[in-house]
Nucleic acid binder design. Structure first.
Lengths: 206, 206
DNA sequence: ACCATAATCTTACCATTGTCAAGTTCTGAG
DNA sequence: CTCAGAACTTGACAATGGTAAGATTATGGT
């Protein structure tokens, strides 16, 4: 009764993505814990119950953010993909850490296990993450086939590789140490160290 | 009026630690996000406003948990400390990852930057974390002095070392992959890989 | 021993949040 | 055209973090 909008904006048209964007915005301004369904709705210019027609609950909204982030990361890695496996290994590292640094809030979402589906459910999040992980594994396998790396379980080797770049990303973002802001060239240098370490320490040529 | 306890339990006596324990319990049962000040108070058998006499707010309570966890980790590392720097490097890695695996919720607290003091404030959390980090740095320095490692900025090297074990810990706990539960001997093997990688890849002897 | 003062805890209250149920408005397929 | 259902709104509920004011107990200085 109060409102008599002539223009029919009763249906938002693209609310789902508007909500996701609002949530990202909110997270960037503050913390990922400061995301509030009601504030998200408010920013999308919609009532506080509207989101429930696009997401089952708050967790689902957050999970969608995590899925989006993983998808984007995968996309960025694929864009850098070439034929040389050694090159690809480096690309994965650089893209990964840079993604974490330039989208810290999104990066944090990706590893909040709370957001995953209950155990046993086939999880979209898990699938996408596994997709990226398998790019790493196959890179290592290629390196092994071409004699660039030692034999060994590629899965276990890949876990170590992922650990190094994931750990670096995490520490740079969230460790209660870290020299902020990060100096110029620091990233390249550190990634270089990691690269060297992997090639000479893990993938020892026979 | 309702209660007329003869025994004077009006003062809890040790509420602060009781609250912390209740919080840890709650986190372990569910998620660290499921911690509720009111439920914590309930479990400690105390009114919902009582915690505010021991912690400024919820964040302070959680921060105390993080500080406790860092302290405990530091203690465990020191217990394994010996003279051989190579041995110490291994000890740090093992203790670190094992701590993460056996106290996953506490481990997660340690790296929720939200819990740190506002930027600029001298932060107890940062201090303790730096203390552990410096044990790593000094280990590397010792290795350099005794010719076990190449020259290079010990701080930067330490960051890489920390990254590897931190990343491994994180992935094992929170990555949406990870073969759960972790097979027997898996940990030792992976840490072995890391160790090998560091010694042959990062700390190349001249 | 005594009492003021501070520490500890309680009750009452507020705004905000996540979620649900029931109603309202729009849209598109038949 | 119409009407089933999708997209939204309003209103309510219990629970939460936080504050304020009062009750209770401990403590130290005299």
């Amino acid at each position: 009764m109060t409102q008599s909008n002539k223009n029919s904006t009763y249906h938002h048209g693209n609310l789902r993505t508007a909500l996701l964007n609002a949530a990202r915005e909110l997270a960037a301004e503050n913390t990922i814990d400061s995301i509030t369904l009601r504030e998200v709705a408010r920013r999308a210019g919609v009532s506080h119950a509207a989101p429930y027609h696009h997401f089952a609950d708050k967790r689902s909204l957050l999970r969608a953010l995590a899925i989006d982030a993983f998808t984007e990361l995968g996309k960025q890695i694929k864009e850098q993909w070439q034929t040389d496996p050694e090159q690809n290994l480096k690309a994965i590292g650089m893209v990964y850490v840079q993604f974490a640094l330039s989208h810290p809030t999104e990066f944090r979402f990706m590893f909040r296990k709370t957001l995953c589906e209950p155990i046993g459910t086939p999880d979209e999040l898990t699938e996408i993450a596994n997709g990226i992980f398998e790019m790493l594994i196959s890179t290592i396998q290629t390196m092994q086939e071409t004699g660039l790396a030692t034999t060994g379980n590629p899965q276990e080797l890949a876990l170590i590789v992922w650990s190094t770049i994931h750990g670096l990303s995490n520490l740079l973002i969230d460790a209660p140490i870290a020299p902020q802001p990060i100096p110029d060239g620091f990233l390249e240098y550190q990634i270089g160290l990691v690269q060297k370490m992997l090639l000479h320490g893990l993938f020892v040529r026979a």
